[in-house]
Structures are given as C-alpha cells and as structure tokens.
C-alpha cells in the first residue's frame, strides 16, 4: 500500500468517525438540552462538510469555500455551546463579541480559492482559551462531585484537543505547503488521528448524559 493510499484510507476513517457521536446522539436525543442540540447540529455540519469536501475533490473542484464556511459555522455553534455551559452573569457579552469579531474578520477574508488559515487559527486559539477557562472554572467552583461522570468534561476535553491541533497545523501550514514534501502527509495523519480521538471523546461525553 502506497503512502497516498494509506493517507486516503485514514482520511475516510477520520471523516466517517463523526458518525459515531451522531448515531450515539440519536439514542440520547430526548435528553438533549439546547446546548447539546447545538453540539448535534455541529456534528451534522462536520459530516456534511466532509461529504461535500470529498465530493468537490471527486469533481475536481476547489473545496476551500466549503471549509471556510465551516469555520464560520463552527465558531457560532461552539461558542454557543460554551456560552450555555459557562452561564456567566458578568462577562456574558464576551460570548457574543468574540465570535462576532471572528465572523466579521472571517467574512472579510473569505475566499473561494484559498484556505482562510488565519481565521481558523484565531478561532482555534479563542476556543482553546474557552476550553482552558472551563477547566479553570471547574477547578475553582468545585461543584461537580465526579468529573469523569459529567458529560461536558469529556466534550470540553475533546474540544481542547481538537482546537489545539489545527492551531499548530495552521500555524506551520504555509511553511509545510511551500516545502512540497511528502512528509506533509504525516502531519495530516496527526490531524486525522486527533479528529478520530475528538469523535470518540465526544461520544463518551454523550454517553454520560443522564436520560430522563
């Protein structure tokens, strides 16, 4: 099996792994609140993006527009999920201002022919900060008796891993792309592995939701 074939196979596994949390969600859907419904929509958007991206490659079309749009939708949905979880009274407006700023910036830099790396980097940093702040809040509040039994701990861990990964990749992507090296594939393997890990950890989180 050539390196390209391995890469394609891993890409397919990574893309279809999003089906695991989606199918699991269907079993728990009755117990979903608005936050979890947003997560479900996010997972469906991920699946649609993967399928559309693959379709564009098959049709030999550029898929940058799809991924750039996905970044913007992702910003709205994930910030909403964190907004619901933090439930702040004092700094709630930050969950409106930050995604709005990212959306405006992303909209201005929106392109059909190239990847919007800077926007996804800013988005990844902001959401990584959200994830870290959540851990800080949990540690200060100390209100969850068993952390591993609480669904959002897993979802937050998944987001932390997932957003730090593309942040690193997008940070070095231009250098890597310019190098035209086959080693680039290995870097994407890490990203694909993280995506699978993200979907598994999110599934664990969904399984921790108490059904009514």
């Amino acid at each position: 099996m050539s390196l390209n074939q391995v890469f394609t196979l891993l890409s397919r596994i990574s893309a279809s792994s999003v089906l695991i949390p989606i199918i699991t969600s269907l079993f728990f859907f009755k117990a979903f609140n608005s936050q979890l419904k947003a997560l479900f929509i996010y997972l469906v958007v991920c699946l649609v993006t993967e399928i559309s991206g693959e379709a564009c490659i098959y049709l030999e079309q550029d898929n940058y527009a799809i991924y750039n749009t996905f970044t913007l939708i992702e910003t709205i949905l994930v910030f909403y999920i964190y907004y619901k979880e933090f439930n702040l009274t004092k700094y709630n407006y930050l969950f409106l201002i930050v995604p709005l700023a990212i959306l405006i910036y992303g909209g201005m830099r929106f392109s059909l022919v190239r990847s919007n790396n800077l926007t996804s980097s800013i988005e990844a940093i902001s959401l990584s900060i959200c994830a870290l702040l959540y851990f800080y809040k949990v540690f200060v509040d100390m209100t969850i008796p068993k952390l591993t039994s609480y669904y959002f701990f897993w979802i937050n861990s998944a987001f932390l891993l997932y957003f730090l990964s593309p942040f690193f990749i997008s940070l070095f992507e231009n250098i890597i792309r310019n190098s035209h090296s086959p080693v680039l594939n290995y870097l994407w393997v890490i990203y694909l592995f993280i995506t699978v890990l993200f979907n598994i950890v999110v599934t664990v989180g969904i399984c921790k939701i108490k059904r009514n």
Binding site: S179, V183, L187
Partner: peptide
C-alpha cells in the same frame, strides 16, 4: 526542510501527548 518538518511533527505529537 525535511528535518524541520520532522521536528514539527515531533513537537505536535509531544504537545498532544502533554495535553492528554
């Protein structure tokens, strides 16, 4: 460039491992 990339991958893996 290849050495640089290998270094990036190593750093990426290490960061993820540290994060976990």
């Amino acid at each position: 460039n290849q050495t640089q990339l290998a270094l990036f991958i190593a750093v990426g893996c290490l960061v993820m491992f540290l994060l976990v």
